[in-house]
Amino acid sequence: MLKMINVSKTIDGRQVLEHVNVTLEPGMIAGLVGRNGVGKSTLLRTLAGILDPDEGEVTFNEINIHQEPAIKQKLTYVPDSTEILKTYNVKEIVKLYDAIYEDFDVMYFYSLMDRFKLPKNRKLRTYSKGMKALFLMILSFSTKADFIILDEPTNGLDPIVKRNILQFIIEEVSERQLSVLISTHHLEEVEKIADVLIMMKDGQIESTTSIEDAKSSFRKVQAVYKHALPEKIANLNNVTILSQTGRVYTLMIKGNIQETMEKMQQEQPLLLEELPMTLEDIFISSLGGESHVS
């Protein structure tokens, strides 16, 4: 079990992580989402032992990873940068990883290379960006780690490879109680494969819920009233306006769904209907609109 306990981190005088608590159980795929600059990469780099927390600690199976880094034999990190091993060729990397990780499975690595049709006799710098990202992921899974941290893993992958790799992650997790933490902006991926959704906002964990719970605690509706949206509805804390076209409002209701729907009915709408909802809708309503992208 990987735990981040009350971790705070300040960079350049700005508090990037603020009393963050995260617990990730074995056999779980967790998706970490949040807007640019909220501290996702800092959180992952702290979990991997690259950055030291100013306060708090990170433990893996109850062992502090900063004090006893040997525990990271079972915890690997795939950064968003694909340039880290570019001067190596595949054979050199295999030799290096075999020397680093006691359980590195060379045969398995090459079988994955074949499965994803990656060339074996080339330097990594000659790979395309997507191939490098895929390669680093394959490398990470071949260490037979119990916990894998992936920072923006599908950036640069084409849709077919992306689908294959997501399928591959699901297979790995179901086969051997592996846990994966994925930081991504591609919400549809999280929706497809994650069990748990971790939302970050302003250096803090906004919520940690299962995808099902997240969806069931939100409702997306379209409403049309005779005049504008009644103030009674607009002033409700749990109602967010996603968009407005004339008198047509698209609203997101967070919590107290039944009660809120009744209130909306009482205002005699011309139209009130439920819309299909995606994780993106939840993301926008929970973590802010498009205007604040940093």
């Binding site: 991997a48 032992g49 690259i50 034999q73 940068s81 340039e83 680093i100």
Partner: peptide
């Protein structure tokens, strides 16, 4: 400079 510290420091070795 090349940010490969991210690899080295994530490995299971003491600093």
């Amino acid at each position: 400079t090349t940010h490969s510290t991210d690899l080295t420091f994530s490995l299971p070795f003491k600093r």
